[in-house]
Amino acid sequence: MQRKKIDYSNEHIKYLKLKKTDKITTILAQIFLLITIIALWELLTQLKVLDPFFWSSPSRMFKTLFDMISSGSLFEHIGITMAETILGFIIATALGYFIAVLLWWSEKLRKILDPYIVVLNALPKIALGPIIIIWVGAGMPAIITMCILICVVITTLSMLSAFLSCDKDKIALMRSMGANKFQILFKLILPNALPEFVSVLKINVGMSWVGTIMGEYLVSKAGLGYLIVYGGQVFKLDLVMASTLVLCLLACVMYLFVGILEKKVRKK
């Protein structure tokens, strides 16, 4: 493999420098914006322009966080929510992928199930909340089920369309070399749809958080979603804000994780 040597002209070095300073100023501006928001928020609540009872404030938020960390309850809630999200994410992705493969395999099945999938996709899954609670019971299983319901249909639809969009010539080529349907699936269709799979993973990271938190709003006795709902009900805005912040950070971390995975796949 031929790699280009690093032997740039002056003009190109200037260009690279410009790009770099551009990046640095962007990041500085982002940090500045964050600090301003926090400072302004703190100031306005300290001066009682905003009532901290309704608006909470950064200092009260962090105090709540520290209290929860020192009592250890924060990690318990995080653990529960994380477990639900990750389980829901994995099950939904695997299940959706598997159904997509089945639907790719059988055109007949695809045609029969088409209207059902359309309806399932359009249905707001939260409407199924009460049914889920009755069928699987209130608690963790219900939350994970909610999470799966939210992710699975979109996974199936995205993957199926990726499978079906495979180049007809490539399939003909495989067949002209004597490939059977299994070989076409495993050597062509699945690897060909890998980039789409990574996009689906990215979408599902967001969706599975939505599913879990929605599930926790409905039924839970623990978890970040529970803290937010509970905080809202007893007007502890500090708790609501602090939990939301933690949620943001967690979603970020999970997103970064998938980002790394994506880079690995794209390298190929």
């Binding site: 010539d169 490539k170 003909a172 080529l173 070399m177 004597g178 050597k187 062509l188 690897p191 060909n192």
Partner: peptide, 29 residues
């Protein structure tokens, strides 16, 4: 009876190296 078929586009699989592309038919058989 093996018949070879080449299309307008080369239809090489982008995720396989040239060597892996070339031995695709052998893998299938």
């Amino acid at each position: 009876i093996q018949i070879g078929y080449m299309f307008q586009r080369d239809n090489l699989f982008e995720w396989r190296t040239i060597y892996k592309n070339v031995i695709l038919g052998l893998e299938l058989k």
